[in-house]
Computed example of a mutant assay.
Amino acid sequence: MTAKPMTKTQLVAALAEAMGSDRKVAAAALDAVAEVVAREVAAGGTVTLPGIGKVACKERPERQVRNPATGEMVTKAADKQVKITVAKALKDSVNG
C-alpha cells in the first residue's frame, strides 16, 4: 500500500515549521521557487535543486508514432518535454 502524496497545504506547513516562520511566508517562498523553475525551464534552461535533482527542458524532433486506437502511423510534431533527474543524495537517502 502506498502513502498518499503530500498536498501543497501539508508541504507549506512542513516548510513553515522547518523555516521557523508562518505559513504565509512559507507559501510565498514555495510559490516563488515554483515560478522561477517554471520560467527557467520554459525558456530552455536547466535548474538544479540541491539535494533533489535537476529540472530541464528537452526538445524532441518530429517523429512517427502509432495511434493505439487504429494502429495507423501518424506524424507527431516536434515538441518539448520536461525531464527531472533525481540527485544522488536523494536516491541515497531513500535507499539508505
Rank of each mutant, 00 (worst) to 15 (best):
1 M>E: 12
1 M>V: 13
1 M>W: 08
1 M>R: 14
2 T>E: 10
5 P>I: 08
6 M>C: 11
6 M>G: 05
7 T>Y: 03
7 T>D: 03
7 T>A: 02
8 K>S: 07
8 K>P: 09
11 L>G: 04
11 L>A: 06
12 V>G: 04
12 V>M: 08
12 V>T: 14
13 A>T: 12
13 A>S: 11
14 A>D: 12
15 L>A: 14
17 E>T: 13
18 A>F: 07
19 M>E: 12
21 S>P: 05
22 D>E: 07
22 D>Y: 06
22 D>Q: 02
23 R>I: 05
23 R>E: 11
23 R>G: 12
24 K>F: 03
25 V>K: 09
26 A>C: 08
26 A>I: 08
27 A>D: 14
28 A>Y: 02
30 L>E: 09
31 D>V: 07
31 D>K: 00
32 A>T: 14
32 A>Q: 09
32 A>G: 11
34 A>W: 06
34 A>H: 07
35 E>A: 15
35 E>I: 00
35 E>Y: 03
35 E>T: 14
36 V>N: 05
36 V>P: 04
37 V>P: 11
37 V>C: 05
38 A>T: 14
38 A>D: 06
39 R>M: 05
40 E>D: 08
40 E>A: 12
44 G>Y: 03
45 G>D: 01
46 T>G: 01
47 V>R: 00
47 V>T: 04
48 T>A: 13
49 L>T: 00
49 L>N: 00
51 G>R: 02
52 I>K: 11
53 G>W: 03
54 K>N: 15
54 K>F: 04
54 K>G: 07
54 K>R: 15
55 V>I: 12
55 V>P: 06
56 A>F: 00
56 A>T: 07
56 A>C: 01
58 K>E: 03
58 K>L: 10
59 E>C: 01
59 E>Q: 12
60 R>E: 06
63 R>F: 14
63 R>N: 01
64 Q>T: 15
64 Q>C: 07
65 V>N: 03
65 V>M: 10
69 A>C: 04
69 A>E: 06
69 A>N: 11
70 T>G: 09
70 T>I: 13
74 V>Y: 02
75 T>Q: 10
77 A>I: 04
78 A>W: 01
78 A>C: 00
78 A>M: 00
79 D>I: 02
80 K>L: 00
80 K>W: 00
80 K>V: 04
81 Q>L: 15
81 Q>I: 13
82 V>S: 04
83 K>H: 11
83 K>T: 15
83 K>Q: 12
83 K>M: 11
84 I>N: 07
84 I>C: 11
85 T>G: 10
85 T>E: 02
85 T>H: 03
86 V>T: 09
86 V>I: 12
87 A>D: 14
88 K>W: 06
89 A>E: 13
89 A>R: 07
89 A>H: 03
91 K>F: 05
92 D>W: 03
93 S>H: 09
93 S>G: 04
